[in-house]
């Protein structure tokens, strides 16, 4: 097994763990955390391909990961404040209780 395929397998496993969490948990915060885990698995893929790829001097993988981390941070901030707004409205962040878009 080459080193790169080890990293790719680990990243696939992290993605599956995040997917399982996002699908099975009913708490909105945990679903958001699961999505963050899936983003992180993609970041690991970028860095692994950059490290073992043919042209690491171009820095493409590193740049993509930096921008991806920034977008994920913005997503987490906006997502958590939406969860706060929903909680203030309906006193619950259980996803099964969020079944109407109108107040």
């Amino acid at each position: 097994m080459s080193p790169l395929s080890g990293y790719l397998l680990l990243s696939a496993l992290l993605f599956s763990i995040g997917l399982a969490g996002a699908l099975t948990r009913r708490n909105a915060i945990l679903v958001l955390i699961g999505i963050e885990l899936m983003l992180n698995a993609a970041n690991l893929n970028f860095i692994a391909f950059w490290r073992y790829g043919p042209n690491p001097a171009a820095l493409t993988g590193v740049m993509f990961t930096i921008f991806s981390i920034s977008v994920a941070a913005a997503e987490a901030a906006v997502g958590l404040s939406i969860i706060l707004a929903v909680y203030r409205h309906s006193k619950s962040i259980n996803l099964d209780a969020m079944n109407s878009m109108k107040g």
């Binding site: 970041n43 490290r51 990961t65 930096i66 994920a72």
Partner: peptide, 14 residues
């Protein structure tokens, strides 16, 4: 993997 900057950014941000 040798990406020091990304590693420390990960710690800072996440």
């Amino acid at each position: 993997l040798g990406a020091q900057f990304v590693g420390f950014t990960q710690i800072l941000v996440y």
